[in-house]
């Protein structure tokens, strides 16, 4: 792997997956496991929904990028095929 190169989409994706798995599990979740209301909402409940929304946002970004990448790949492949 070339360390100078920008990390690939797949590398960032792996990082985000690990982040997601970590976000919803012990011990990270313990930080928010507090018996109190924040903005009138139970703290943990609020955290879980915000983190959830965040994860969905990240998935959305990836799905769009992956789809674009695939379409671009198919285009170049088609172009390559065409002259033959």
């Amino acid at each position: 792997m070339n360390p100078d190169k920008k990390p690939s989409l797949h590398e960032i994706w792996l990082l985000c997956l690990l982040l997601g798995l970590g976000l919803f599990n012990f011990p990270f979740i313990e930080i928010f496991n507090k018996d109190r209301l924040v903005f009138g909402t139970p703290f943990l409940y609020l955290f879980l929904f915000i983190a959830w929304a965040l994860i969905i946002g990240i998935i959305y970004a990836f799905s769009v990028r992956f789809h674009q990448q695939e379409k671009a790949y198919e285009r170049t492949r088609d172009e390559k095929d065409e002259p033959e």
């Binding site: 994706w13 997956l17 997601g20 919803f24 994860i55 998935i59 992956f66």
Partner: peptide, 19 residues
């Protein structure tokens, strides 16, 4: 309590791998 949520958080995490 909150343990109804993992049933939906899990699929969300799984969706990460669908591609």
């Amino acid at each position: 309590g909150l343990d109804y949520l993992p049933l939906y958080l899990g699929p969300t995490l799984m969706a990460f791998t669908w591609w």
